[in-house]
Amino acid sequence: MPQAVTICAAAENVKFYDPDIQETLIFSPVGAIDSPEKSLKRLLLTMTTSNVINLKTGLAEMLKGGVIMDVVTADQAKVAEDAGAVAVMALERVPSDIRAAGGVARMSPPELVQKIMETVSIPVMAKCRIGHFAEAQILEAIGVDYIDESEVLTPADDEYHINKHDFKVPFVCGAKNLGEALRRIGEGAALMRTKGEPGTGNIVEAVRHLRAMNTAMRRVQLMDDSELMTEAKNLGAPYELVKMIKRDGKLPVPNFAAGGIATPADAALCMQLGAETVFVGSGIFKSEDPKTFAKAIVKATAHFNDPKMVLEASKGLGIAMTGIEISKIDAPMLMANRGW
């Protein structure tokens, strides 16, 4: 009997047997430099303890079934917390305003993030630019609970993302397909979300990304083991993670939806398509009545698969944020295309 080595995990029951470890050593580019033990640990999301889901993904597990809201002031953060948000994303401007303002969008001023952290007791997330590890270092020094390496801000590196294993604070990243998600997880993201098309109030891109992910995972599950390496090559994804997809049929970290969610029904749609929590950006504070909208989306998310409850949540809301047709957006402002 091969000896079972329990590695972690972000995935359930991740047990690697000797043959798999051998494969890891042969094929993993990380294994070529590191010790076998370190190689496996790095590959599987900077594990700290042998059989425990790492603490970074652990926090994401706690945020499941909830709504994470973009806020630009301490007052908005309070509104979000009072409405039942599981966390807030501290920003200088919501995506629709970033879109309207144009120019370079950067990390929020530290004082703003700190003020929001002092105001609410729920976790506070903040965004840094893709590849901007110095911004991420600042956010870690502030002590935020999660960093979003986000395409909503103007990318700082047009080739590489941050090596998220280097950080103690967990990262969430966006993806529009399976390959992209697995690359980010390989770099150390502890939580994934769809990119959608932020600041549009248009759910079509988030739906596209959720469906693309689901289809690609079902495809991998039907594959013969001998096909997985080529699939990994085609996806541009780490082979070990592709093998985990075949075994589990789901990402090894939670997957949330983001980008264009504007109504309780949008939230219910994403949840039914497999998202485990929703991020709502401009959808709340660009609506006519943010307090009511915030509560309604929280309500709909908790009972996403009960149409009667979603119906109740959808009543008496006033006007939702104004939406934008994706084809009307200039190519450089298509945020979903940012990231590599």
């Binding site: 926090l59 976790p123 935020v144 604070v169």
Partner: peptide, 25 residues
């Protein structure tokens, strides 16, 4: 006391009754 240990950066793994457990915020 809520979040008595601090924020996420203070989250840690402990051992209780010989079993690994997680303290998260």
């Amino acid at each position: 006391v809520r979040n008595g240990y601090g924020r996420q950066l203070d989250s840690h793994v402990g051992v209780i009754d010989g079993y690994n457990v997680s303290f998260i915020r």
